[in-house]
Design a protein around this nucleic acid. Structure first.
Lengths: 140, 140
DNA sequence: TATTATTTACCACTTTTAGTTGTAATTGTC
DNA sequence: GACAATTACAACTAAAAGTGGTAAATAATA
């Protein structure tokens, strides 16, 4: 994810909409020379700036972002950005609990249940601290 | 698209994966104080940095980006922004559950517990399906 | 409970870089 | 050719990234 590439995308998008560096610049509130640096990859672009640019060019921010192997954007259970319905429900009801002790207890209960899996019932193993989630689509 | 919000997302994601500020910091090659600034919204985060962070946390970059009003999946804006440590923990362990049936059962259990409160123990009432929570900030 | 170690928060300071201005080179159009 | 845009690339300034030190919480252990 390098600056040069993003800069290129910006430049292309800008030309597509028929804006000059100058026009875009004053829309996002910087000098046009600065826009130049964005496009050529000299300056690093912050998220908020990119957001402004995307808005000025009528494009989604995600249009400039690319995860490696962009296939997993929709799936990804191991990513909180998209909470599943189950998880939302869980959270919702957990939140409704007014008694702090109950919440606390419930949490440890869930922890306990979660800690159960992967443990072989036969052999007595040392408690594994935190398990790495397995069977998950790795992002990197 | 403000820094504070993105910072929150990062913090939550970090805790979900069980990393300390320090660990994350050395993974992306900055001081942990700097990570702090990212999370609290003091420092602006560049795209490349966000990319590094996302990678370190095994998440797609797009998980931290949100186009306006297209606030991914979950309806309520600022939903994750306000996840407490407890809730993060809860979610984390709930996610670790591989068995679908178990998750399902656990969810109904939590629902049941949540449904308990507000019920008068004295009178034997007909099972009220789902109770409406009172005086609570609605989630959905 | 006291104690120690870990994690996190806040402080003043340094260094990097975003962002500016100025000027020159390009690319039109008349 | 001249004139007006758009773009490029310098040198400089202002601002924010990034660092280190220290204190305050927050586990973890005896």
């Amino acid at each position: 994810m390098d600056r040069k590439h993003i800069g290129n995308l910006i430049r292309i998008a800008r030309k597509m909409t028929g804006l000059s560096q100058m026009k875009l610049a004053e829309e996002i509130g910087v000098s046009y020379q600065q826009v130049q640096k964005y496009e050529t990859g000299v300056s690093e672009i912050s998220i908020s700036r990119l957001s402004q640019i995307a808005q000025a060019l009528n494009m989604p921010v995600s249009g400039f972002i690319f995860d490696k192997e962009k296939t997993m954007v929709c799936e990804s259970p191991g990513f909180y950005g998209a909470l599943s319905d189950d998880e939302i429900e869980l959270l919702k009801h957990f939140r409704s609990l007014k008694n702090k002790k109950v919440k606390e207890g419930l949490l440890t209960a869930v922890k306990g249940i979660a800690g159960l899996q992967g443990k072989r019932p036969k052999k007595k193993t040392k408690p594994r601290s935190i398990r790495q989630r397995e069977g998950e689509t790795r992002v990197s």
